[in-house]
């Protein structure tokens, strides 16, 4: 139901390196799942509106009033890499 090549493409979109064994296993599991979800194709849903929210609450918004955010120590408390109040990553060359 799904080719290994496609699993590789999806894994790349999701930024998930898969080992070769994982690729095999995922291809099989996803194949099973896709077969299962293809069940939905039996149903004619022409003209049926989609439901995103089970309970609709339209027009929820807030006023444009500023609040102070996190302190610098809180911003970087959980961060794996920082320098001089910046988050850092290996240089991205454009």
């Amino acid at each position: 139901m799904i080719e290994k090549k496609e699993v590789q493409h999806i894994a790349n979109l999701a930024r998930l390196r898969l080992s070769e064994e994982e690729e095999e296993a995922m291809t099989q599991h996803l194949g099973q799942m896709i077969t299962y979800i293809n069940k939905l194709k039996e149903l004619d849903t022409t003209g049926v509106p989609p439901t995103v929210h089970a309970v609709e609450m339209p027009n929820v918004w807030r006023e444009d009033t500023p609040c102070s955010g996190l302190s610098s120590s809180e911003v970087f408390q959980n961060s794996p890499a920082m320098q001089d109040n910046f988050f850092t990553v290996p240089k991205v060359v454009k």
Binding site: I2, E6, V7, I10, A11, L13, A14, L16, L18, E22, M26, H29, L30, M33, I34, I37, L40, K41, L43, T45, V48, P49, P50, T51, V52, A54
Partner: peptide, 29 residues
């Protein structure tokens, strides 16, 4: 990982309507 992959697949170009939109319609039913 399995679920991230399945979800990414269902939203990816070419499958969005067949899977994701369809599932939302079934949700309505």
């Amino acid at each position: 990982k399995r679920r991230i992959l399945l979800g990414t697949y269902a939203l990816s170009s070419g499958y969005y309507d067949a899977y994701y939109v369809k599932a939302l319609q079934v949700r309505t039913l």
